[in-house]
């Protein structure tokens, strides 16, 4: 995984739980997981898992919840870090349809060697979308979090039915997405 993701994870922890929490997480992690990282370089996925595990211990959050919350934060972080990539879509649908053919393609130009997942969309007559996710990392929880971030970013609600999942032995995850306008403005 790229250093950017690690560093956004650090930001996420610091913003949510404070500086001290991050230091505790580092102290609770194995030595090799503590190294300093920079955005464009690639680090072992295992290190991220160690950090997430330590974060759960320190914060008391169950891993599912922690990863999903990080996904929501990650979306905002990536959109902020790469405004040129994120700003070219008219709406959430367009963005989802552009993940594979535009977003992750651009990501690979900026961060050579990035191992981005395959995220494809299929449109239905009723306006819903089927999004398929395929990755050896099987990080569909992170995906859900990213979708939460997408909702917040565009101010829409995206109903999801995640009936087909890699964690249940499917070759890929399938999410049926239904869009509705933003919840009544507060």
């Amino acid at each position: 995984m790229k250093g950017v993701i690690f560093n956004l994870f650090e930001e996420f922890i610091v913003e949510t739980f404070g500086d001290e929490a991050w230091e505790k997480i580092l102290d609770a992690s194995p030595h090799e997981a503590r190294e300093v990282r920079v955005g464009p370089l690639t680090y072992p996925d295992g290190h991220l898992l160690h950090l997430v595990g330590a974060a759960c211990e320190v914060s008391g959050l169950p891993p599912e919840k922690a990863v999903r919350a990080f996904g929501r934060f990650l979306f905002g972080g990536l959109a902020r870090k790469y405004p040129g990539i994120a700003s070219q879509f008219a709406g959430p649908r367009e963005m989802l349809q552009g993940i594979d053919s535009v977003i992750h393609v651009e990501v690979n130009k900026l961060l050579p060697g990035a191992e981005t997942p395959r995220v494809l969309c299929q449109e239905h007559d009723d306006g819903s979308l089927t999004l398929t996710y395929e990755s050896s990392r099987k990080m569909c929880t992170l995906l859900e979090g990213l979708l939460d971030g997408l909702e917040a970013h565009y101010g829409v609600t995206v109903e999801r039915r995640h009936d087909v999942c890699m964690h249940q032995g499917a070759p890929r995850c399938e999410l049926r997405l239904t869009f509705s306008a933003a919840r009544a403005a507060a």
Partner: peptide, 24 residues
Amino acid sequence: MSEAVLQRKLARAEAKVRLLESLI
């Protein structure tokens, strides 16, 4: 933020800069 945390953060930031320089 405690002095100790600050020290650690600073040390890591410096390490990052060195890494970035050699990367550049």
